[in-house]
């Protein structure tokens, strides 16, 4: 298959997934779009080197993750800058996309974005992959962590989400 054809097929099939991962990584739309474009550029550059040793999806997610990891620095700097300026994470532009305009859903998304933004890089990577329903083995292959480490981290994060949401929703209820 020609490089161009392969690239088109990959973007058609995985474009949305790649974009979703970038969304969970970056709060800022510019940073997010940059990471998405960076991922596409890297996929283009490496498209003809794919040897089929791993699943194509694993390969795509690896490239996307590494593109996000390369760009996350400026996002952190920006976030720090916002906080220093007296703003908060909530001030960031958020373009939620869902069919129904459900305030509860929006609240959950807001909470989850904040939750993601304070996770460390490895955990954020794992959550992004988990949300794409990748297996533990695939997540381990993409991150380079051991399968048991992945399982432990995911378990811990799930627990954190539950607890922190409870606190968060109690806080909202009191308002």
């Amino acid at each position: 298959m020609q490089k161009e054809q392969l690239f088109r097929t990959l973007v058609d099939e995985y474009g949305k997934k790649i974009f979703r991962i970038c969304c969970w990584y970056f709060n800022d739309p510019d940073e997010r779009d940059d990471a998405y474009q960076e991922a596409l550029i890297r996929i283009w550059e490496h498209a003809d080197t794919f040897k089929g040793r791993s699943k194509i999806s694993t390969w795509i997610y690896r490239v996307t993750m590494n593109a996000c990891l390369s760009g996350i620095r400026s996002d952190k700097r920006r976030r720090r800058h916002l906080v220093e300026d007296g703003g908060s994470l909530d001030d960031l532009e958020i373009m939620e996309f869902h069919e129904e305009n459900d305030p509860e859903h929006e609240q959950k998304l807001l909470f989850f974005r904040d939750f993601m933004s304070v996770l460390d890089t490895a955990d954020r990577t794992l959550v992004s992959l988990y949300l794409e329903e990748l297996s533990t083995r695939e997540m381990a292959e993409i991150t380079g962590l051991s399968e048991s480490n992945v399982r432990v981290r995911i378990f811990r994060i799930k627990d954190q989400v539950k607890k922190q949401w409870e606190e968060y929703s109690h806080g909202i209820g009191r308002l």
């Binding site: 739309p29 779009d33 939620e96 996309f97 998304l109 949300l131 989400v161 539950k162």
Partner: peptide, 18 residues
């Protein structure tokens, strides 16, 4: 609320914002 509730949610419109 569970972590799994966020599976396959695209939290923004699209790469170009339209």
């Amino acid at each position: 609320m569970e972590l799994d509730d966020f599976k396959h949610i695209t939290p923004a419109e699209g790469p170009t914002g339209k």
